[in-house]
Design a protein around this nucleic acid. Structure first.
Lengths: 240, 240
DNA sequence: ATGTTTCCTTAATGGCTCTAAGCAAACCTA
DNA sequence: TAGGTTTGCTTAGAGCCATTAAGGAAACAT
């Protein structure tokens, strides 16, 4: 294993990229069921079982491609954050949320894989690429929220007033994120996360078509709620 | 076609029930992918293509079973509503929400089919059993909310202050439900619906496992928010 | 120059969806 | 009650899929 990437290694990486691109193309153009080992291999120009030199099976291929999507989404969010490097934290957080929605709406099939997939065993482990990518994704929002908390703590509930079960879970989660948010603040963070993510899922999976087809105003409304909960004074107008 | 159910018809119904039960058993015990035409037929005791006498294909079978789940969920909610026939509307509404969660958590695989499924073309039509069942399901919450609105109108936003797109959509939806809620009230109803359904999806699809494993307190918290939004004074304590 | 590793191939097994062809029992009707 | 028709099933088969096995040829390492 040389430190410098060998020719072989470069070729292999190129092939992997080609495989991922083929899988994504099939997903977007023909839906989830069309992403089969055989179809992907055909698209790439090799036949069938050759793909097993790159992935142990269908589930692993799907996991790798899903991790790609996660990374792409995280990258889009990070870019939105970094594009406003000097701006107030709250403004950056809202921009990140909007970037998240923009990507999700523009890539519904990909978002569907990220969210609606039952996570198959090979991708369940904490070491899996899928999980790593999910962490990075979570991190973007967590970082900004922690920054917000440090700069100007937002209102939090009284920890003692919460049910014991919830208190314990929040304490454990606070520890898991190295105490960057105390349990009470983690409570608010998770509540925001739930509303944001939940709304996006409803939109992308078309659960609200019976009433809403254009969800943009609903999303902005949700964002205003979150801004209030996080003590972001929305002096800059919400983009529309 | 006799008005009285013929012997043939009774047998056919019994077979249909057996098929549905077999499909559900496979779903619950071995997951979504195990529900194949062949496996279901094997379970029922007939072999393969016989099932095509009952359903035109895999999608239609899935749609029929999913509609069953929808109906079962709706029935559970209706029962919760009717068990408190004399009680205040708000209390009944909360009971219905809790019943909805109880069923969903107790039947995650079934809920997954209801929610997380991309709705396949044969089940997309407004006349499909799936859609009918979804309507009945929506109805339970809508009825109670409309009753609430008639008895003691809850606070609503100013329609004129909403974006034009949203205003139009709410007006159309209000008309679609025969004006039982005016557009402003429909706005509040839909906001509640989104939070409730969204949270449930996150829970059942395990999107929050990284922080919460016991979501019961989170759900009760959400319910308190909804009660506030709907002007339900929660004098009776929330069951815990 | 030789042995090893890597990448790919074809062959084959067994499962899946779905169509086609056909048999037998149940039903209606005359 | 004898006739044809409808219904419920069967097996056969085409074409897809995932996955394993066996082997060939090129690239690489020494």
């Amino acid at each position: 294993m040389s430190a410098q990437t060998s020719r072989r290694e470069r070729l292999r990486q190129a092939t992997l990229e080609e495989i991922h691109a083929a899988a994504r193309k099939l997903l977007v153009e023909q839906g989830s069921a069309a992403v089969t080992i055989n179809a992907v291999a055909r698209q790439v120009g090799m036949s069938g079982p050759a793909l097993y030199h790159y992935y142990a099976g269908h589930d692993e291929l799907v996991g790798a491609v899903t991790a790609d999507f996660f990374r792409e989404l995280a990258a889009v969010m990070e870019r939105a954050r970094d594009a406003r490097a000097g701006a107030p934290t709250g403004e950056r957080l809202l921009a990140v949320c909007r970037a998240m929605r923009a990507w999700s709406v523009a890539h519904p099939a990909e978002f569907g894989w990220i969210f609606a997939s039952t996570i198959s065993p090979p991708n369940r482990g904490a070491a899996s690429a899928r999980h790593q990518a999910a962490l990075r994704f979570e991190q973007v929002l967590l970082d900004l929220t922690a920054e917000l908390w440090r700069n100007r703590p937002f209102p939090v509930p009284d920890l003692a007033a919460l049910p014991a079960s919830q208190r314990e879970q929040l304490t454990a989660y606070s520890a898991a994120i190295d105490g960057r948010l105390p349990p009470e603040a983690a409570h608010v963070f998770l509540a925001c996360w739930i509303r944001l993510y939940g709304l996006l899922c409803m939109e992308v999976l078309h659960q609200l078509d019976f009433a809403y087809t254009d969800m943009e105003p609903v999303f902005e409304e949700c964002l205003r709620d979150l801004a209030t909960a996080l003590g972001i004074d929305d002096t800059q107008g919400a983009a529309s």
